[in-house]
Amino acid sequence: MNDFGDALAAAATLVVSGNPELIEIVSLSLKVSFSAVLIASVIGLPLGAALVLFRFPGRLSIVVMLNALMGLPPVVVGLIVYLLLSRAGPLGILGLLFTPYAMIIAQTILVTPIIAALTRQLVEDLWTEYEEQLRSLGAGPFRALPTLLWDGRFSLVTAVLAGFGRASAEVGAVMIVGGNIDHVTRVMTTAIALEVSKGDLALALGLGMILLALSASINAAAFLLRDITRYNKRSRTISPRVTKWKT
């Protein structure tokens, strides 16, 4: 218990003092995860919506596969990306293995099905509501797609956040393709795993605290942003009507 208390105190000191090693790891983690989520969103959001709007043979199989891929084991993804990027692999010539780019590729593969599958579900609900009206106005699938993504943007934040949660918490894939190289590919999750195995609980706990805080902050910021946008829109317009009732 004392060990845990000491480790916690040391971790707090590392966080408060702004330990350079800690900052470097956190910074790389954020870069990798944000990049992966950004790329996955660019692919996953339109893909999910397209699966609702377009009818083609094999569509249901793709939907089932996407849902199944939401539980894709990170180590398997890591292994596949490793084989693709290794010297003997088809993409070995790019020399990306054991670089942050390889980690971004692995995380993108993990996160894209999550964002696409959740988007498909959310957009399908919205399409049920909108379909007749949009078709009546003459909107084909290509025009309806951006409309649905825009009108569902507040709900779709949840899909993107789920993707970010997966990316930032993932350890298996980035460990395999990144190699956990100090000052090059060491991110929070791989560093925590390493420090625990070395018995250095202080740094591991410090990173754990930051990981939790970041995750909570990003979720809170997304919800706040959503609420502020909604509140602003409502307050801008509801107040004149309330004034009218009072007079």
């Binding site: 509501e129 909108y130 007749e132 009206q133 009546s136 106005l137 003459g138 409309t147 009108d151 569902g152 829109k233």
Partner: peptide
């Protein structure tokens, strides 16, 4: 397509102003 319109029993509003 462009010369006709329809209004439904339950008004369908886009989530916009």
């Amino acid at each position: 397509t462009t010369a006709q319109a329809m209004v439904f029993q339950r008004p369908i509003m886009l989530r916009r102003t």
